[in-house]
């Protein structure tokens, strides 16, 4: 168990390292291009060269790479070209906002989809199952920005109930949270629901559930004690891995609603060519993804006695 965790941890670090190297070579191998981005397209070659030597770009590529990694480990990603402030400051602020959004999302999505999934899977083929299944295919079929379009059309333009942007310029507002969270939940809950349903349905047809029923146990105990525990192992991993998916969704939703989060920061940076911000954002995103994979692997082993004790 500990060995497994250690192994995963090493693999995780290795991936982070490779990713950082790819990123750095992608964005900073060509020094002149970097200087061009920093000083603007109209800067002269001399200006760029002076800037390069002033900022330590004369060192060989690998030295620069190690310095950059060193900086990144201390949270120093340089200054944003667009906002002229340290990237880390920007990032912390934006991550906090995104964190709030993600937290609210999970708090609603998890109970919702687990309940629906278990209800649907408990009696495969029942009308409840059919309704839940069809509903969840429908919602997962509509990408975030399309849902966002429809919701905005109705709640903002037609009924004037909610604000169309969530930039929170005048402080935190629950009202501005509603649409972004709703869009994320609508798109994502279907997937988890379907996974939970499949897992539950499989457990319900397993021989040990038959054993439990034929032992004469009350139905409630069969479900609560025998089925749920086994049925929820798979959804657990899915939910944790959902973090990775969620990041993609967050990018879209934040851009759509002008929510000042991590995703909109990344897209702005990509459109502006703010390479230091891109680098930092991607490293953070990959860290979150890899870390959630780690948690999901470990969790899976812990939840599954068959693996835990072998």
């Amino acid at each position: 168990m500990i060995v497994l965790a250690a192994k995963r941890l090493v693999a995780m670090l290795l991936i982070m390292l490779v990713v950082s190297f790819i990123l750095f070579s992608l964005f900073e191998a060509d020094k002149m291009a970097v200087a061009g981005k920093v000083l603007g397209p109209y800067s002269s070659v001399e200006q760029r060269e002076t800037w390069l030597s002033q900022n330590g770009y004369d060192e060989p590529f690998f030295t620069r790479y190690t310095q950059w990694v060193g900086g990144a480990l201390h949270g120093d990603f340089g200054n944003s070209l667009q906002y002229k402030v340290p990237v880390s400051e920007l990032l912390v602020d934006r991550l906090k906002n995104t964190g709030i959004l993600a937290l609210v999302f999970f708090l609603i999505m998890i109970p919702l989809s687990l309940t629906l999934g278990v209800l649907a899977g408990m009696k495969e083929g029942s009308w409840l199952d059919r309704i839940i299944s069809i509903f969840s295919v429908l919602t997962t079929s509509i990408p975030e920005f399309v849902t966002a379009t429809f919701l905005t059309g109705l709640f903002v333009y037609t009924w004037h109930l909610l604000p169309g942007t969530s930039s929170m310029t005048s402080g935190f507002s629950w009202k501005e949270m509603i649409l972004p969270v709703a869009v994320l939940v609508i798109y994502d809950f279907g997937y988890v629901t379907r996974m939970t349903r499949a897992s539950m349905a499989e457990v319900m047809t397993s021989q040990y559930i038959r054993t439990a029923i034929l032992k004469g146990l009350p139905y409630k105990r069969v479900i609560m004690r025998h089925a749920l525990r086994n049925a929820l192992i798979a959804p657990f991993t899915v939910i944790v891995l959902q973090l990775n998916w969620l990041l993609s969704g967050l990018v879209v939703v934040e851009v759509f609603f002008a929510y000042k989060g991590f995703g909109s920061l990344l897209v702005d940076a990509a459109l502006f060519g703010d390479i230091y911000v891109i680098e930092a954002c991607v490293m953070v995103a990959v860290f979150i993804a890899v870390f959630s994979q780690f948690i999901s692997d470990i969790g899976y082993t812990l939840l599954n006695p068959r693996i835990r004790f072998s």
């Binding site: 991936i15 993609s248 990018v251 990509a270 991607v282």
Partner: peptide, 22 residues
């Protein structure tokens, strides 16, 4: 598998953004 894991560790849209940005 390792190569695959590297690319799987990028959220989908973010991978696209990097590639488009480059």
């Amino acid at each position: 598998s390792f190569v695959a894991n590297i690319f799987l560790s990028f959220p989908f849209i973010i991978l696209c953004i990097i590639i488009v940005a480059t």
